[in-house]
């Protein structure tokens, strides 16, 4: 067995990770689904997409503060350097996309002249004035960054399962177990 990683993520970090995992996967499926149908699903998926996106934006900010406050457990000491680099790079790319996607969505709708209505009666202020050029660029970015985020999540999941099933080094457990070990 490989040397185990020291410690686990803090309780707030673990809660936020799994809550946001569900929300972000839901968000990605809602996003590709809503633009791929003219059925009545389109409407309720769009209505779900906007408040869910803003909730993810709020939670990722909290999550970054939690990470800054509580830190993260070290990766196993014997992890090959390229895997270590890939882990750090992909984690920061995930944070960047979690932050960027809702902001791009909000800015994009503002640039398209659309009111950003979260619920009946709750409309967010415009971030920019209407501009078809900006709308078009952001609309393109929103799609391709969403597909990149989904690919990155698959990679992240594959890596987590690799740690759990192949290396068996406690990296996945650091996100599933509490700090108190028997």
């Amino acid at each position: 067995m490989n040397p185990r990683t020291a410690g686990t993520f803090s309780l707030p970090a673990r809660l936020l990770h799994w809550l946001m995992a569900i929300m972000i996967l839901t968000m990605l499926f809602v996003g590709v689904g809503m633009v791929a149908t003219v059925s009545e699903r389109h409407v309720w998926l769009v209505q779900l997409h906007k408040p869910l996106g803003i909730a993810i934006l709020a939670l990722v900010i909290v999550r970054l503060l939690v990470r800054w406050r509580y830190g993260t457990p070290a990766l196993p000491a014997d992890l090959p350097p390229w895997q270590r680099a890939a882990a750090h790079l992909s984690h920061w790319a995930l944070y960047a996309l979690m932050l960027a996607m809702p902001l791009i969505g909000w800015t994009m709708l503002s640039a398209g002249g659309y009111p950003v209505t979260l619920f009946a009666g709750v409309t967010l202020p415009d971030l920019v004035s209407p501009s078809p050029t900006l709308y078009s660029a952001l609309r393109f970015a929103h799609t391709w960054l969403a597909l990149s985020l989904f690919a990155l999540i698959l990679l992240h999941l594959a890596a987590a399962l690799y740690h759990a099933l192949i290396r068996r080094d406690g990296v996945l457990a650091s996100m599933t177990r509490s700090r108190k070990q028997p």
Binding site: F29, V32, V35, A36, T37, S39
Partner: peptide, 14 residues
């Protein structure tokens, strides 16, 4: 599937 790529018969906005 949800994105319609496996379902060419679906009536999409496209």
């Amino acid at each position: 599937y949800v994105g319609g790529w496996l379902d060419p018969g679906r009536l999409t906005p496209d």
